[in-house]
Simulated assay, not measured.
Amino acid sequence: MSKAQKIVVGISIGDINGVGIEVILKTFEDKRMLDFCTPVLFGSSKTISIHKKILGVETNVQGIRSLDAIVHGKINLLNIWKEEASVQIGKATKQGGNYAFQSLDKAVKALQEDAIDVLVTAPINKETIQSEDFPFSGHTEFLESHLEGDSLMILMNDALRIGLITGHIPVAKVAETITPELIEKKVSILQQSLVRDFNINKPKIAILGLNPHSGDNGVIGKEEEEVIKPTIQKIKDDTGWMIFGPYAADGFFGSGTYKQFDGVLAMYHDQGLAPFKALSFGNGVNYTAGLNKIRTSPDHGTAFDIAGKGKANADSFKEALFTAIKVHQNRSEYKELTKNVLTAKS
């Protein structure tokens, strides 16, 4: 891959008191990573230097003043604040959240303007980042408000992709939020993503039930019989897609049935993420499907308890980086293959 062809990966540094900067620096300690992409960090040379000193790492970072000055073969850092931020490793502070937002905001604007090809986000603290500019429950909702399309959160590894019908909402609101229209929309996003982003021609998708034992034919809740099953049948009748379910979540994962499918849709956050992280914590990737731009992140949070101690594992961040690159390549190939598709004359 030539320098001109290298994918430019924008990286928001996350909460400056967490492990985000550590996993970024550890990822690029291996200079071979620069053979796959050109990274651009959105942050501050001073802040990065503080972390390097605390961690005792020597990863070289190239400061740039504008995105026009990106240097291939280097770890680029766009300085977006000049002051020396107060880094309080391992602590959740409002200032840490403020700088996390500044980094994310600048990175997303660069993504919108095609100054970067893809975005990889380091972890934020959802409480300290809250402000008038960020009244969102997470990255996914912020990205959906700034980019085109409808989002679908997918947690994934090589063997499993789990999307969420409902995302960051209270459990008490899950049942009332699940409607035929929402299920149809999320299935459509997952179907399109599996074809376009993961190069799966005829994906098989499983849908989980909402209630224990998938409702036991109405004995434990009516949602499966009244909403979920009819909607699955309608989707199959209308599209011919290979959609199956609803499956009882416990047996579905416990028996390994998930291995038979290219994608899974869970009804709510913990129904999907709890088994995923039990099966794959530290190696998974959070991918935001359905948008016109590509964003991934590691499957862990700020990990304040181990921040600054050199203990953070960079594997999930590396996987997020490689996933973003691969999805970009797959989308480019898909666009090329479909741009001149002949349509039958009426």
Rank of each mutant, 00 (worst) to 15 (best):
102 Q>M: 15
16 I>F: 08
226 E>Q: 14
333 E>M: 04
46 K>W: 00
3 K>T: 10
234 K>E: 13
125 N>H: 13
280 S>P: 01
112 Q>H: 11
83 E>D: 15
152 L>N: 06
338 T>V: 12
66 S>H: 02
292 N>Q: 06
65 R>Y: 05
281 F>G: 12
171 V>C: 04
203 P>Q: 09
13 I>S: 03
332 S>Y: 03
42 F>M: 06
225 E>I: 06
81 W>R: 06
188 S>W: 03
74 K>G: 03
313 N>C: 07
144 E>N: 09
277 K>Y: 12
156 M>F: 09
274 A>W: 00
15 D>Y: 11
70 I>M: 08
72 H>W: 02
193 S>P: 00
158 D>I: 00
221 G>D: 09
34 L>H: 10
198 F>W: 11
47 T>K: 01
110 A>V: 10
271 Q>K: 08
226 E>N: 13
159 A>K: 15
188 S>T: 15
111 L>A: 09
52 K>Y: 05
125 N>P: 07
132 E>S: 11
323 T>Q: 12
274 A>F: 11
226 E>M: 11
183 I>A: 11
343 T>S: 14
159 A>H: 13
328 H>I: 05
321 L>D: 10
55 L>P: 07
172 A>K: 15
113 E>M: 11
291 L>M: 13
157 N>Y: 01
235 I>E: 07
316 S>F: 00
55 L>V: 05
292 N>W: 02
208 L>C: 12
95 Q>M: 13
276 F>Q: 11
165 I>D: 06
15 D>W: 09
294 I>H: 01
119 L>M: 02
82 K>V: 10
247 Y>K: 11
309 K>G: 06
330 N>H: 15
172 A>M: 12
313 N>I: 12
308 G>P: 08
38 T>E: 06
7 I>K: 00
102 Q>S: 12
275 P>M: 07
225 E>L: 13
250 D>I: 04
192 Q>V: 00
212 P>T: 02
102 Q>H: 14
134 F>P: 05
37 C>Q: 01
5 Q>V: 01
169 I>Y: 02
244 F>T: 14
148 E>C: 01
109 K>F: 13
209 G>V: 09
45 S>P: 07
44 S>Q: 10
238 D>I: 09
200 I>P: 03
62 Q>V: 00
13 I>A: 02
242 M>T: 14
175 A>P: 06
220 I>F: 15
332 S>R: 12
